[in-house]
Design a protein around this nucleic acid. Structure first.
Lengths: 242, 242
DNA sequence: CCGAGTCCGTGTATGTCGTACACAGGTTAG
DNA sequence: CTAACCTGTGTACGACATACACGGACTCGG
């Protein structure tokens, strides 16, 4: 381990290609970081974050547990690498800024849905991987033609990514709660109906009575609604400067 | 355990006071659910979610590990109870709808900050505790005077809670990354500067050069900014109906 | 007032997990 | 050729969530 003394977490240094292996002897490595990360993502995709243990990962790779630690400082480190890999490359965008941000958000949403375990990874640092930084850069670029100040553009992109992440997480939780892995599906509408007495919860009760919770096409409409609110807010700010 | 057959997770039933203990004999219980939950929250407040293990919890209560399971079906169950307790009572609100939602969001934000571990709890169900439902109800009530349709009001409250949660989480991560528990504080601005080459990341580089990342009063301004955008978006919708 | 039924906390055990450590054999630089 | 060194392996440890069986404490029906 050539310590680059950059003060960065080791995983981040690896992501940016700093920290060269510096092989001076010894057998050829039979494993490689990309293979490890790919296998880890496969495991998590298939069985959720809980299915990703170091022993299972090693087994999938055809090795015993410990060699993995020759390539990765810790499981947390590995997760950081997996996150940046799974978020993938940000799409190229074009057109008016609002359409760009819509596309940006939709693409990000899809990535989260493809790798739902990302939402369960305990975040313990800045999103500083190259892919994540590209996402950030693309978001900023979309806002370049607006009247927003630089700091406001940064805040806006942060706001959007927060929104997308939170939204996907909430929907995923709702779906999991409605159709649990074990046991029969739960009819939440009836549960809330039993528990939300109209005296204490008049508004909620009205909502339930109106059948709002059994709406069609729920996840997508919900996502669109929130996204439109946020972008309307950004547009309001933009226009107030023009 | 009198099975109430309601299809609800046991923790939720306990929260709503269904599922009576039905004591027919035996020694008086030395523990109680409220005591357990309170101790668990204390542990998590002090040392984060990682500090909350069943054995440590029992030790703090002066018992061995297992008796806790007489009161709680599993650790996940316990966490559900803790979440509802820690989120606490929603504040009473008054005034114009926008001011109400600002107060609502600010209060929710403070709760999350007081119990930062809540952000690390893997959410695996609907927020269906009484306290959480009161928060929801209050949010809906604030929107009652608007022109929004019922479904839109629900979506708006969901949007807000998503925003607050995500925002607090992001800021907490940023702070943790900037000032890690072990090791010297990391100067992220310089890190990004080294890594974000102007060719690949022109917008990010400009941002860093402009010193945006060393801004004063960061967390609060950031929160306010996003909240204003969201509420502007809601207001736009409201006015488009009037 | 007694005894049966029941519920309490304790002790012990199991399986999983992350990861530290010492080793034996392969590999490369000098 | 040899010394330095890196490889994967085996073993071990401590933490954790939780299952199970026990002995004693309490309550209630008679």
């Amino acid at each position: 381990m050539t310590d680059t003394e950059s003060g960065l977490p080791p995983a981040i240094e690896q992501l940016w290609g700093l920290r060269e292996p510096a092989r001076r002897g010894g057998p050829k490595p039979a494993l490689s970081l990309p293979r490890i990360v790919a296998a880890a993502i496969e495991l998590a995709d298939a069985g959720g974050l809980a299915a990703l243990s170091m022993s299972r990962l090693a087994e999938k790779l055809g090795f015993t547990t410990m060699p993995v630690y020759r390539y990765v400082a810790s499981k947390d480190d590995l997760l950081v690498l997996c996150l940046d890999e799974a978020i993938g490359a940000a799409p190229a965008l074009d057109g008016p800024w609002r359409a760009q941000l819509e596309a940006w958000s939709g693409a990000l949403r899809i990535r989260y849905q493809q790798h739902a375990w990302m939402l369960d990874v305990p975040i313990s640092g800045l999103p500083a991987g190259p892919n994540q930084l590209v996402w950030f850069e693309r978001g900023l670029r979309a806002l370049a033609p607006t009247t927003l100040e630089p700091a406001e553009r940064a805040s806006t992109v942060l706001l959007l990514s927060t929104y997308v992440r939170g939204q996907v997480q909430m929907v995923a939780d709702l779906m999991r709660a409605a159709a649990p892995a074990s046991g029969p599906p739960v009819d939440w509408a009836s549960v809330v109906r039993r528990v939300a007495h109209p005296d204490r919860f008049p508004e909620v009760a009205k909502l339930v009575a109106g059948g709002v919770f059994d709406a069609e096409g729920f996840p997508d409409d919900e996502f669109e609604f929130g996204l439109r609110r946020v972008l309307d807010g950004v547009e309001t700010l933009d226009r107030s400067r023009a």
